[in-house]
């Protein structure tokens, strides 16, 4: 009696879980399905239907062809690839090093540094877009500011008769687009947690074997961190790929814009005209193909890597 009751119970829990899952999946998948269906429609069908509809059209390849010929999405895809790769590599590289320093070295300012890092996570890029733009538009700005503030400029003006002003703009470059997104230390937490699960005698054993800090990092910690590194690389790659606001600001010419920014431009037609929604949807599928494929192939690694343990 009791047993069958428990099984009954487990079944009803199962059923409830299934319902919740189906509801959640529909919530996420139905818009995607609409996007996919719309991408196959010709513009005319869309106009006639007076909006989104579930009618499959046979124009997917036509729409794709148009994406390739009439928009710069292919080139912009290349831009996205470059920017997202730079972002992922920089973020993971810096965070790995920072976490390594935080965990394996003793220092008076360790706690303070960690606190500062936590604080920077609270200040997302979207919030400081204007300042960031000013700096990227002229990365020598801090130098100019220091020269002004210390009176060095004044002295130079007295002696040489001109006032130096340095200028170097990184707008419209891959690095200029990528660096501000990469300046973020979320992964420090992930790597720190991971390093803390390593046996505490491991660095001691390496020291006894004659390894210095660099050797220990390269020979021992790096190979052991393969899973979290792969996971965070993917994670940040996808994150950078879908980033919108900053890439929009940082690159002004269509040739330098990322694919997501370019995609939004397709919708920016005349006010009087109905936007080319089927084309836009085809473009969306085109742009999201790479990150979706990456996640599909690597999902195991992502889950394992975010599990945060050395086993």
């Amino acid at each position: 009696m009791k047993d069958s009751g428990m099984i009954e119970n487990a079944r009803s829990v199962d059923r409830a879980a299934t319902i919740v899952l189906v509801a959640g999946m529909s919530f996420i998948l139905i818009p995607l399905a609409i996007a996919a269906v719309t991408a196959t429609q010709p513009y005319e069908t869309f106009i006639e239907a007076g909006g989104l509809s579930f009618a499959l059209g046979g124009h997917f390849l036509d729409n794709m062809e148009k994406i390739l010929s009439e928009t710069k999405l292919l080139r912009q895809l290349g831009n996205s690839l470059a920017v997202a790769t730079i972002v992922a590599v920089m973020k993971v590289g810096f965070c790995f090093l920072a976490a390594y320093a935080l965990v394996f070295f003793e220092g008076k300012f360790r706690r303070a540094l960690f606190a500062v890092m936590i604080a920077t996570v609270m200040l997302p890029l979207d919030l400081r877009v204007i300042t960031t733009y000013q700096i990227v538009a002229n990365v020598a700005m801090p130098l100019n500011w220091i020269l002004d503030a210390t009176g060095a400029n004044w002295a130079i003006e007295k002696v040489a008769g001109f006032r130096p002003y340095f200028r170097l703009s990184l707008l419209d470059t891959y690095f200029g687009t990528a660096a501000p997104i990469a300046a973020n230390c979320t992964a420090v937490f992930i790597f720190r947690q991971f390093f803390l699960t390593l046996p505490k005698d491991l660095p001691r054993a390496a020291i006894m074997d004659g390894a210095g800090p660099i050797r220990f990092m390269i020979d021992i910690v790096l190979p052991l961190s393969k899973t979290p590194i792969v996971a965070t690389l993917l994670f940040f790659f996808v994150g950078a790929w879908t980033n919108y606001l900053w890439p929009l600001v940082a690159a002004s010419t269509p040739d330098q814009q990322t694919a997501v920014v370019g995609l939004a431009r397709i919708a920016d037609s005349d006010i009087d005209e109905i936007p080319q929604v089927p084309l836009l949807m085809a473009g969306a599928l085109f742009v999201s193909f790479i990150p979706v494929a990456l996640i599909a192939v690597m999902q195991r690694q992502i889950v394992r890597g975010l599990n945060l343990s050395s086993r």
Binding site: D201, R204, A205, M208, D209, R215, S310
Partner: peptide
């Protein structure tokens, strides 16, 4: 000096031969 630790502190990603030979390699 050489040292043997309580929780072994072997290098998990190296095989036995590389574990033993790491110091010699360095």
């Amino acid at each position: 000096c050489a040292m043997v630790f309580q929780d072994y502190a072997l290098y998990p990603h190296m095989n036995v031969e590389d574990n033993i030979g790491y110091a010699l390699k360095l």
